[in-house]
Nucleic acid binder design. Structure first.
Length: 283
DNA sequence: GAAAGATCCTGACAGC
DNA sequence: TGCTGTCAGGATCTTT
């Protein structure tokens, strides 16, 4: 499942496409019935001949920037995956639900494969327009920043609007910290030794600071391991998988012994999402 | 405006 | 073997 570290790892591999000109961007017939794939053939034709300048990441969104104004917003959803192939023939053998085909002036091709159709691929008039898009405009701190702004985090989490939230729920809210999904939420709370149902207003200053440090530590560690691959669903464009799942302490480890105290890992449902935790280590 | 809950969607897996 | 039900989860929409 692509969270911040996975999306950033994908972005770095896709950067190999930059400095090339676009030959063609095609939304396949498979994408047509899903409203988050917006744009007709003639709209994507405006990118022909344009150089791909950069690919940015805001939270889990990828923004493709070209030499002229329109940009493309892309979200991997829960099963979206970019695959780099050298020949058109490989599209059918290496993908199962291809939604978008990006052809550059020379191979390789980049194919966006989205099994569960939660992904997004649409045109925005400009980078400024993307920054005004509410899910991006309202983003909080980027959790993958190399020097995590701890003081900013402490001030933000103290805002009145967050005080009655449960920490397991709030960590998934990108208005506080962007880039955290369900997997790393559980790992961050284990690292910080905080129970997922703790109410924000009950956190001590010391716990809040340690939580901020834990967010940064877990997200960067996951990024350096290129994310978590539990199965074939998350892979990098090169086909390589991530390695972060090797050090998970609680996620999907229900009824297995805690690596620190030996107690059995428990699961609870919070806002319709599974949360894993150690009942002894986390308070 | 904020919070909570529902919805989208398909593949994997468990249970019968 | 084959069918049915459950689960997974990020963003977004609807309801409260």
């Amino acid at each position: 499942m692509p969270e911040g570290p996975e999306v950033e790892s994908v972005r770095l591999e896709l950067l190999q496409l930059t400095s090339q000109k676009v030959k063609k961007i095609t939304l396949t017939p498979l994408s047509q019935k899903y409203p988050k794939y917006l744009g007709k053939e003639d709209e994507f034709s405006q990118f022909r001949g344009q150089e791909l300048r950069n690919i940015h990441r805001f939270n889990k969104f990828l923004i493709w920037e070209f030499e002229k104004k329109p940009v493309i917003l892309n979200h991997l959803g829960m099963s979206g995956r970019w695959t780099i192939v050298d020949t058109k023939e490989e599209i059918s053998t290496k993908t199962t639900h291809p939604k978008v085909i990006v052809e550059m002036s020379k191979p390789p091709y980049a194919i966006f494969d989205d099994t569960r159709n939660f992904g997004q691929f649409r045109i925005f008039s400009s980078m400024e327009a993307v920054k005004l898009y509410p899910p991006i405009k309202k983003l909080g701190i980027d959790g993958l920043t190399k020097v995590f702004p701890l003081q900013d985090f402490v001030e933000r989490i103290a805002e009145q609007r967050f005080q009655n939230r449960q920490i397991g729920d709030l960590l998934m809210d990108p208005r506080l910290v962007a880039g955290i999904g369900n997997i790393y939420k559980a790992e961050i709370l284990f690292e910080a030794k905080i129970h997922p149902e703790r109410i924000i207003s009950t956190l001590t200053q010391e716990e809040t600071v340690f939580l901020g440090k834990s967010i940064s530590k877990i997200l960067l560690k996951a990024f350096y391991d290129k994310g978590s691959s539990f199965d074939a669903r998350y892979k990098l464009p090169s086909g390589e998988g991530g390695q972060a799942q090797r050090w998970h302490m609680v996620y999907q480890r229900i009824d297995q012994p805690c690596g620190e105290c030996g107690s059995l890992i428990k699961k609870l449902i919070q806002k319709n999402r599974s949360t894993y935790f150690c009942p002894k280590c986390q308070h």
